[in-house]
Amino acid sequence: MKPDVGRLGLLDMLEPSVRADFLRHGREVFHAAGAVIHREGDADRALEVVVDGRVALSRLDEQGYEVQAWVLEPGDSFGEIPLLTGRPRTHMAVAVTAVRLLRLTQEQFIDLLDRHVGLRDVMMSSLAGMLADLADAYDRVQRLSVAQRVSRHLLQLAAPAPDRQVLAVGQGEIARALNVTREAVAGALRQMRADGLVETGYRAITLLSLQKLRGLR
C-alpha cells in the first residue's frame, strides 16, 4: 500500500524561501539498494525526505514476519511520528533502489519551525493528506482481487523501465506483504504465468511486460 502518487510531497508544499532554507539545513545521505536505513523501534528522531530512489517501509507482525506497508518515492517524507511525538520508529525503512535522502535532525527541524511559522501549517496539511491517502489506499486494496493486489505489489517493486525485468522476491515475501496466504499468491502467479505476464523461478519473478501488468490494476 502506498499513498496516492498525486499527492504533493512535503518539499513541494513549501514556499520557495522556506524550501531553500529547508534544503540548506538538511544533510544529504546516500544508501545503496538493499541497505537498512533504520529499524522498527530505533530511537532516531530525524525527518527524511526521498530525493532520488525508492524506500520501502515495513514492520513485523505478531509472528515476527516482515509485512511491507508501502513504498515511498521522490518527494515523499518519513519520520514525522518520531519527530513530533518522541516515539520510536514505527517501521523499518529499506532502500529498494540506490537512494538519496535529505535528513534533518529534530534540533534542525525545530529551528526551522521557530523561524518559519507557516511550516507548522504545511506539516499539518502534509500529515492530514498522508492519513487520508492511506485510508483511501486501504479501502481500495480491500476491494481488489489477490491477483490485482499481487500485480500492484510487483509494480511497486519494479523500476519504471525496462518493460521486462527480474525481481528478486519470493512468494512468501509477497504473501506477508499483502497479508494473504502463500497459496493465494501462488494461484495468482499461476494465472499471471498463463496470461503471459510473468515467469517465476526460485525467489525470482520475471515481469514480461509492465504495460500489460498495469492492466490488472
Rank of each mutant, 00 (worst) to 15 (best):
residue 1 M to W: 07
residue 3 P to F: 06
residue 3 P to E: 07
residue 4 D to A: 07
residue 7 R to D: 08
residue 7 R to Y: 04
residue 8 L to H: 07
residue 10 L to M: 14
residue 12 D to M: 09
residue 12 D to I: 02
residue 12 D to T: 01
residue 13 M to Q: 15
residue 13 M to G: 03
residue 16 P to V: 06
residue 16 P to E: 06
residue 17 S to T: 11
residue 17 S to K: 15
residue 18 V to W: 01
residue 18 V to K: 02
residue 19 R to Y: 01
residue 20 A to E: 15
residue 22 F to D: 03
residue 26 G to I: 09
residue 27 R to I: 01
residue 27 R to W: 01
residue 28 E to R: 13
residue 31 H to G: 01
residue 31 H to E: 00
residue 35 A to Y: 01
residue 37 I to N: 02
residue 38 H to M: 02
residue 38 H to N: 06
residue 42 D to I: 05
residue 42 D to Y: 01
residue 43 A to T: 10
residue 43 A to V: 03
residue 46 A to Y: 04
residue 50 V to H: 05
residue 50 V to Y: 05
residue 51 V to G: 02
residue 52 D to C: 06
residue 53 G to E: 02
residue 54 R to P: 00
residue 57 L to V: 03
residue 58 S to M: 02
residue 59 R to L: 07
residue 63 Q to A: 15
residue 65 Y to I: 00
residue 66 E to G: 01
residue 71 V to M: 11
residue 80 E to T: 09
residue 80 E to K: 07
residue 83 L to P: 04
residue 85 T to R: 04
residue 86 G to C: 06
residue 87 R to A: 15
residue 89 R to S: 02
residue 91 H to F: 12
residue 92 M to V: 03
residue 92 M to F: 04
residue 92 M to I: 03
residue 96 V to E: 04
residue 98 A to P: 12
residue 99 V to A: 07
residue 102 L to R: 11
residue 105 T to Y: 07
residue 106 Q to D: 15
residue 108 Q to L: 04
residue 109 F to R: 12
residue 110 I to D: 14
residue 111 D to C: 06
residue 111 D to F: 12
residue 111 D to E: 15
residue 112 L to N: 10
residue 114 D to A: 14
residue 115 R to L: 11
residue 119 L to A: 05
residue 121 D to C: 01
residue 122 V to G: 05
residue 122 V to Y: 10
residue 124 M to L: 14
residue 127 L to V: 15
residue 134 L to T: 03
residue 135 A to D: 12
residue 138 Y to Q: 14
residue 138 Y to V: 14
residue 138 Y to R: 15
residue 138 Y to L: 13
residue 139 D to M: 13
residue 143 R to C: 08
residue 144 L to C: 12
residue 147 A to K: 12
residue 151 S to V: 14
residue 153 H to G: 00
residue 153 H to Q: 13
residue 154 L to M: 14
residue 155 L to F: 10
residue 156 Q to K: 04
residue 159 A to T: 09
residue 162 P to K: 10
residue 162 P to H: 10
residue 162 P to W: 04
residue 163 D to L: 07
residue 164 R to K: 14
residue 166 V to Q: 12
residue 166 V to A: 13
residue 167 L to D: 04
residue 167 L to R: 08
residue 167 L to K: 09
residue 168 A to H: 13
residue 171 Q to M: 13
residue 172 G to C: 06
residue 174 I to H: 08
residue 174 I to K: 03
residue 174 I to V: 13
residue 175 A to M: 03
residue 175 A to E: 07
residue 178 L to V: 08
residue 180 V to G: 05
residue 182 R to A: 06
residue 183 E to C: 00
residue 183 E to H: 09
residue 184 A to F: 03
residue 186 A to L: 05
residue 188 A to L: 06
residue 188 A to T: 04
residue 189 L to P: 14
residue 190 R to V: 12
residue 190 R to Y: 10
residue 191 Q to H: 01
residue 197 L to V: 09
residue 197 L to W: 01
residue 198 V to T: 06
residue 198 V to K: 03
residue 199 E to S: 14
residue 201 G to N: 11
residue 201 G to M: 10
residue 204 A to Q: 15
residue 206 T to N: 03
residue 212 K to M: 08
residue 216 L to F: 13
residue 217 R to F: 00
